[in-house]
Design a protein around this nucleic acid. Structure first.
Lengths: 204, 204
DNA sequence: ACCTGAACACCGTTCAAGT
DNA sequence: ACCTGAACACCGTTCAAGT
């Protein structure tokens, strides 16, 4: 044992195992991750920067897989492409969403993707002092929707009679179908609104 | 010690202490909460249903404080009022947001508030099979924005040069001013879009 | 009914020791 | 350089014992 000739671990291997563990539905933890890699928890610390470091690795690895690298087209096409990438990422790996929440983004590929978005909006004609807010709005959207994919089927569990909610829940779609619909509606809404805003800005 | 004549704890007292603890910026935990109450961790279990139970108590207590009970007016006024309530809640208690994420909502007052929203949309003319999606979109918005309040000032930390992001970040507002601006923009966008959608529905 | 204190299984992290 | 095993401080939860 001790040090093997060829390393058993690497940052990428750890990130992949982490993704698999998270997707399996098991609670994410350093110990469980080590076990799934057939290794001792302390071994991981030769390759990664603690629990949070692993999560940031996961963000980067999935970002590279799902986010468009250098999309072309009009600003709204780029928005759609990026948002769809996020949607697919969150839909296919819902359990990672709560883990990403509230952690600073440092991964280059993910930063790059936000930069693409920001540049597209600047080029599209949005004023400088508004672009970052629009990006943040889009990011808030995406994350909020991502959480919808991660949510239990019954986000709301009314204990007392309701005027509308109970009836609507009873007839509503469930699972991914519902989440897809919510995302489509949300994206449509926000794009309509952004186009409207840009048109108004041009009129002034 | 042992059993005091007048109980030292109650669900409400625990919830209030939890809110205080979370707001203080300290990491939330059962042990820390018990310490802040001058009590043993195991004592709490006479009153609450585990860690998650405490969080749901917190959600309810804050919901009652910030969400409008029976707002009146047009559907879009009700949407604004509810969203502003959520904004104030999240802005004044940002650290709770990540704790609420992905947990089923059972508290009556909070459910009631979503019911008000749903009813307003139904009355406003949105079709039944769309109302729950709109509510979910609004909820996703609010939560996403809430996370913005909870986020570190530097959500993005570019390690390599960027085309637009770095420059925009350098000149951007920070802290609550930025979050407020993002929220205002987002709410404006989504309301514009919803009004547009309703108008189109009426034309068909 | 309500609190304490001991006990449990588990968590993330550090570090000396081994090759 | 890379892994192990022991150790650490901490976590949420259970439960018998005390009033």
């Amino acid at each position: 044992m001790a040090r093997p000739k060829v390393p058993r671990l690497s940052a990428d291997r750890i990130a992949d195992a982490a993704i698999e563990l998270i997707d399996s539905g098991a609670p994410f933890g350093v110990n469980a991750l080590a076990r799934s890699l057939g290794v001792t928890p302390s071994s991981l610390y030769n390759h990664i920067d603690g629990r949070d470091g692993i999560i940031e690795l996961v963000r980067g690895r999935l970002g590279r897989r799902y986010l468009p690298e250098l999309p072309t087209g009009t600003w709204d096409e780029i928005v759609v492409e990026t948002m769809q990438g996020m949607r697919r990422l969150y839909a296919e790996h819902p359990a990672i969403v709560p883990l990403l929440v509230g952690k600073t983004i440092t991964d280059d590929a993910v930063i790059e993707s936000y930069d693409v978005l920001a540049t597209a909006l600047v080029d599209g004609g949005f004023p400088d002092d508004e672009v970052l807010s629009v990006v943040a709005v889009l990011d808030s959207f995406a994350l909020g929707f991502g959480l919808d994919y991660a949510s239990p089927d019954d986000i709301w569990q009314p204990g007392t009679p309701t005027r509308s909610l109970g009836r609507l829940i009873a007839t509503a779609e469930r699972g991914d179908a519902r989440s897809d619909r919510v995302f489509e509606l949300g994206l449509e809404l926000v794009l309509d609104a952004l186009r409207l805003r840009l048109a108004r800005l041009r009129d002034d």
